[in-house]
Design a binder for these strands. Structure first.
Length: 474
DNA sequence: TGCAATTTCGC
DNA sequence: CGAAATTGC
């Protein structure tokens, strides 16, 4: 390659790392380009046939706007963003040929799927004599680097968290690289963002998402700054009250890599020290779920506790639809589902309540709920979504025991005692504190509870008991 | 990061 | 006798 007459050209291959701050691959590419007096181009390749699962609708919406923001951010650094669609191997090879690229750099993927993509990319690049340099990563600690004393991966969160927070100080985040000087990279053909067809059109259901979010690195930074100035120190005491704006709302930004967890960790510790730990513990769950996904690539569909493959799930599409649409007749459950439908996000406390309701009250398979949220959440993450569903369902590695059944009315009384959250999303329900006379005129439109929670709880516990051989009958 | 029944505590 | 701790699902 050194004999090539073409100027040095490095390619940054972007996936779930749509930012310029703390970006090891971009930083290294720009360093190399400077060293060789060359240029850098970035590429995003949408290869849905290769994906382990198609991106959900809300995620597609987010990705569109995140790519739009990223193109601007990169432009400021003198790096054009090329969009491609189709077979990863072909597209990557074509881009490398067209641009006479000498090296492809990426942040090492942190899911089994992204690692397979890297293997495919290497295969495609080898005949071209072009190396793939994968480094950095999107976690605080690489998913195979935190091990128990006996060298095994952790299966329990608390010791994992202890090891992570005490023995694995995350690497310091890298600054955004300095912009390249004037000059242009060899032109590589690409698609327009619109032609990727990531946005919903008929109908356009994204109005609520547009009002709720600013995808992209600048939006992530805004969320982070607001959280750092405001509620991070109160997070531990306030986070469970869904009517309060006490959470960070950073999850979709982390999902698409618009903010690196190392930057987040660094900023929280720098400003709040130990007061930031209750929040960082949740970032620790994100790490834990990614580490789990590495051990169990089938985590999205296969229960980690094998006995749960025999669980007597019910099969009732009509009841599932009521749950999805927020028509269960339990205001806290329905409020959560409507917040999700309208904004692409749901408060974490309410996620636990609605998930428990699906799995334990309705006895419907957790995989149905996982798929629903995969499609509707803007933060739908291949590690967190299955990991959290398995946790709630009691079939995860370090799960809540199955007999922990959330009582929706008690949860509402504890965490939304004035009914503010429930009335915000389900105004037609008569939540506590409502003017009963006003509510009476509209109550007809709100369904009665679809089941008796006490009876449902008994049924769930009986179903669990059926998994274990009865010691008396052996 | 559950709930409810039961026992013990503290006055 | 109500609050708090304990226990089992």
């Amino acid at each position: 390659m050194s004999t090539s007459l073409a100027p040095y050209h490095a390619l940054v291959w972007l996936r779930d790392d749509l930012r310029t701050d703390d970006h090891p691959a971009l930083t290294e590419a720009i360093r190399l380009a400077r060293q060789h007096n060359g240029r850098v181009t970035a590429v995003y390749i949408l290869d849905e046939a290769l994906w382990s699962r198609p991106l959900g609708g809300a995620s597609r919406w987010w990705l569109h706007h995140s790519l739009a923001a990223l193109a601007d951010d990169l432009q400021r650094l003198g790096v054009p963003l090329v969009l491609r669609q189709g077979d990863l191997r072909q597209q990557l090879a074509d881009v490398v040929r067209q641009g006479s690229v000498q090296a492809v750099l990426c942040n090492r993927g942190q899911t089994p799927f992204l690692r397979r993509c890297e293997a495919a990319a290497r295969e495609a690049l080898e005949p071209l004599g072009c190396p793939l340099l994968a480094g950095g990563g999107e976690l605080m600690v690489e998913p195979d680097k935190i091990l128990t004393g006996s060298g095994q991966p952790y299966r329990v969160f608390t010791p994992f968290w202890k090891a992570l927070s005490q023995h694995h100080q995350p690497k310091a985040p890298l600054p955004e690289p300095e912009a390249l000087g004037p000059g242009v990279a060899p032109v590589i053909s690409g698609l327009t963002l619109a032609s990727l067809a990531l946005l919903p059109s008929t109908p356009d259901w994204a109005g609520g998402l547009r009002k709720s979010w600013q995808p992209g690195q600048a939006g992530a930074r805004r969320c982070l700054d607001a959280f750092l100035q405001g509620s991070v120190a109160r997070y531990g005491s306030q986070r469970d009250f869904p009517a309060q704006p006490a959470t960070s709302r950073l999850s979709p930004h982390l999902r698409f890599g618009e903010l690196s967890p190392r930057r987040l960790w660094d900023a929280v510790i720098a400003l709040h020290g130990a007061d930031g730990m209750p929040f960082l513990r949740e970032v620790g769950w994100r790490e834990f779920n990614h580490h789990l996904l590495f051990q169990w690539p089938e985590m999205a569909t296969v229960p980690l506790k094998p006995e749960f493959t025999r669980f007597p799930w019910r099969d009732d599409q009509r009841e599932f639809q009521r749950w999805c649409r927020g028509l269960t007749g339990f205001p806290i459950v329905d409020a959560g589902q409507r917040e999700l439908w309208q904004t692409g996000w749901m408060h974490n406390r309410v996620r636990m309540i609605v998930a428990s309701f699906l799995v334990k009250d309705l006895l419907l398979p957790w995989q149905w709920g996982e798929e629903w949220m995969w499609d509707t959440l803007v933060d739908a993450c291949p590690a967190n979504n299955p990991g959290n569903w398995q946790w709630v369902s009691g079939c995860g590695a370090d799960a809540a025991p199955y007999f922990r059944v959330f009582n929706p009315s008690l949860q509402a009384a504890k965490f939304d005692s004035d009914g503010l959250y429930q009335r915000r999303w389900v105004p037609e329900s008569a939540a506590p504190g409502d003017d009963l006379f006003a509510a009476a005129s509209t109550r007809r439109r709100y369904p009665l509870p679809m089941l008796d929670h006490g009876a449902a709880r008994d049924r769930a516990l009986a179903a669990l008991a059926s998994l274990k051989p009865d010691p008396d009958t052996v």
